[in-house]
Design a protein around this nucleic acid. Sequence first.
DNA 1: CGAAAATTTGACATGACTCAACTGGAGTGG
DNA 2: CCACTCCAGTTGAGTCATGTCAAATTTTCG
Lengths: 195, 195
Amino acid sequence: MQEQNVIINQVFKGEIFTAQDIDFVSSKLKKITFDKGDIVLNANEKVTHQYYVADGCLRTFFIDISGKEHTLQFAVKDWWISDYTAFFEQNTGILTIECIQKSTLYKIFRTDLEEVYAKVPQVEVHFRKKLEKAFASFQNRILGNLAKPAKERYLDFIKTYPDIEAKIKNYHIASYLGITTESLSRIRKELVRKL
Amino acid sequence: MQEQNVIINQVFKGEIFTAQDIDFVSSKLKKITFDKGDIVLNANEKVTHQYYVADGCLRTFFIDISGKEHTLQFAVKDWWISDYTAFFEQNTGILTIECIQKSTLYKIFRTDLEEVYAKVPQVEVHFRKKLEKAFASFQNRILGNLAKPAKERYLDFIKTYPDIEAKIKNYHIASYLGITTESLSRIRKELVRKL
DNA sequence: CGAAAATTTGACATGACTCAACTGGAGTGG
DNA sequence: CCACTCCAGTTGAGTCATGTCAAATTTTCG
């Protein structure tokens, strides 16, 4: 089917597949749609899937003991999202995945993924590269948190992810940067003043 | 050789190898030793190797624009260390790798590693698992930075890595936690008072 | 339009930083 | 064995960034 073709070549852009591979991989991807505000996955649930974002915007966040939300990651078109730590360990997660906008996702089951790895090695390579990139971005985030004040982290964020910034609220950014909405508001005010 | 056997089974504990595999993999690992204070890798150098710690203690750190050092990771016996972001991208790095103690390492060259992956798939699986663990620990670090005050991060650190704590100075811990030595000193004082 | 959500503002509190001085040990050389 | 130095760690005083809480304002959207 032509539609399958389009999807797989979008999801695994850069990899070359045979027609059979495409059939097989597509059979393992399930399309799901969510509305704004929907929860894709709750903390403390078993994490069995990872999700490809075909359209929309999501975030993963952690709720601490005092009830505050801390955003770990955003995902927009062409990103994968899950509670990966739990996904790898086949464990219950600590993150909540929330739709910030109406979203279209393709989900793949953990055990199906292993089957796909075995039959279609390009997929394994593809995910290893993704994991390496995600690792690098976590490293940069840690170093940024250690080395930079909130104002710079904010500037880095809007520069690095303008496409994400366009889709989210300021309080999402604040909870990603590790500051309060009030502090972000003051930082923004100060930046505007300087223009 | 018997010694090869011991080393490979230590480095890749949990994986099963044939005698030929052991020969082949050993031929790619080079033993190197360093004294306390030695620099294994400097920032801005091409990152071509990763290093297995057979003995000793090291850290990777980042020097920011103001000249302050920020510790990204420590490594003790049985850990791997490198500037992974650069290692993956085959790029020049931003981290410095320093020996905190006299250390014995086994290094492996990036291109040799790929050869090993191709011939001995267990090694690839082994490193993928390591990467998943490292990813998880980065995630926890980010969430801890977002959700917890310095005192708790300190307690988490000494609880999670008592073996590392035993080998490093407090100023190393401070630069890992993202606080000054003075602040750490005050936190420690407060904790002692409460016993 | 009107209610709810998001953002901003103000006043004040607090945790962490800076800078400078001081303490205590470990090692060194006379 | 003592004096000296170096390094790590501690302490104090003052400052600054960010947090808290409450209220006002602006934006969003049914």
